[in-house]
Amino acid sequence: MLALLRALWLILLHTFKKRVTVQYPEQKPYVPPRWRGRIILSRDPDGGERCVACYLCAVACPVDCIALQAAEDETGRRYPASFRINFSRCIFCGYCEEACPTYAIQLTTDYEMGEYRRANLVYEKEDLLISGQGKYPGYNFYRVAGVEIGGKAKGEAENERPPVDVRGLLP
């Protein structure tokens, strides 16, 4: 009984405590750099698209809101011909970012994405692609991959020996 009364009293005292509410639009909360907000596609240090359309983000997505189609340019570099995220379904779990082997897909600190039309929440590749490198500067997947693309022949990637001369007789 006393405990109940004490509880009532303690709750009543909260009338005079400091408010924790952040008055949002006027007052912005602190957003940590690793905040999982709006998703972007970044570019590598050379300005090329980082996304190689490997479909891993799409398969990692628990709500299946990423749909893309791979394509290859004439030099063999793979890129997404289309890349669509339906943000009306996205739950901002960040699995896509975790799955991405090239640091292409990144979640940013932007969370102000309210829309009156749901269709406006469907972001195509041109809406997602930014011109910078995002959170992970300096990484270029094609510099470490073995495939040949325009401007990088076989054996020119990091940690690679020049191509083998198959017709050579040396041991």
Partner: peptide, 8 residues
């Protein structure tokens, strides 16, 4: 309720 939960 807000006030007693330190909200507005």
């Amino acid at each position: 309720l807000g006030i007693w939960q330190d909200r507005l």
